[in-house]
């Protein structure tokens, strides 16, 4: 099960624990690290996995690390391609997984809206939107050819509101970054990013100010836009989200790179 530490991953993990109870989920968690995640995410991840007694596999693209790939030096598109997309493919190949759960939802983005719940990927992890298997009733065809793998998206039909509502109902613990707190932030290419460590180039870092902010989604800290907020409780956060006028992925730099960018990334193997 792909575990990205975000709220959707938290919900998916919670569902898995419930589904297999009283047994434990019979699969490990896989986190594809990019080296640029918020530090609080990593702390949260390690504590959570220990509490639940689950197996966690962490993979980072060592080629990218050696090349020194990062969002500041190489730009968001190249960084995401190397550290996320290629890193994920490496990890799946390394462990030989023929199936991986992901927390993607159809309401996130237009090309996601057409993705199957069980999505077959070719040997090169590519997604072909024209060759998707029909999914009828609840009968999922999980048969694979040699070399193929599948991605399973159990949250396909959940909306962002469903996720928040479920977190509230089931009292699911989240990374504190989802809640407003005073944090050092700076504007970088039109996105308000947080100074999570000293790798932010000095000329940018010097302009930082402390603001009360929270995050709607969590990814690499230089690529994740903060929103100004005073919402410190779950109800406050949900209220803000419902009253907001911009979409969830608006804070994500990678979606804006080019037209139909998510579809293209997915064809190349992005989750």
């Amino acid at each position: 099960m792909l575990y990205s530490i975000g709220k959707d991953s938290a919900v998916m993990l919670h569902l898995a624990i419930k589904a297999f109870y009283p047994s434990r989920p019979p699969f490990p968690l896989l986190h594809v690290d990019t080296g640029w995640k918020f530090r609080e995410m990593i702390t949260f991840r390690d504590r959570k996995v220990k509490e639940l007694g689950l197996e966690l596999l962490v993979h980072i693209n060592e080629d990218g690390v050696r090349e020194g790939v990062g969002p500041f030096s190489h730009g968001s598109a190249y960084h995401t391609d190397v550290m996320k997309t290629a890193g994920l493919k490496q990890a799946l190949d390394k462990y030989g997984f023929d199936a991986a759960f992901g927390g993607a939802r159809r309401d996130e983005e237009k090309s996601r809206a057409k993705e199957r719940i069980i999505s077959v990927r070719t040997a090169g992890h590519r997604w072909d939107p024209k060759r998707q298997r029909p999914e009828i009733w609840n009968l999922y065809n999980t048969r694979l050819q040699k070399g193929e793998s599948l991605r399973a998206f159990p949250l396909s039909n959940w909306t962002e509101l469903d996720i928040w509502q479920y977190i509230r109902r089931e009292n699911i613990e989240l990374v504190p970054l989802y809640f407003a707190a005073p944090r050092p932030v700076v504007d970088w290419n039109g996105t308000m990013i947080m100074l999570d460590d000293d790798r932010v180039p000095p000329d940018i870092a010097v302009q930082a100010t402390t603001k009360s902010v929270r995050f709607r989604t969590l990814g690499c800290y230089p690529l994740t836009g903060a929103v100004e907020s005073t919402a410190t409780t779950l109800d406050d956060v949900i209220q803000e989200i419902l009253l907001t006028t911009t979409s969830e992925r608006q804070g994500r730099a990678i979606d804006k790179d080019q037209a139909a960018s998510m579809e293209k990334k997915k064809q190349e193997g992005y989750f």
Binding site: K110, A113, K114, K130, S156
Partner: peptide
């Protein structure tokens, strides 16, 4: 949602909203 559809003006796959 799909690029091909926007070009051809047809809906080729099921999209859920």
């Amino acid at each position: 949602g799909l690029a091909a559809e926007r070009e051809q003006g047809i809906t080729i796959d099921v999209a859920y909203r």
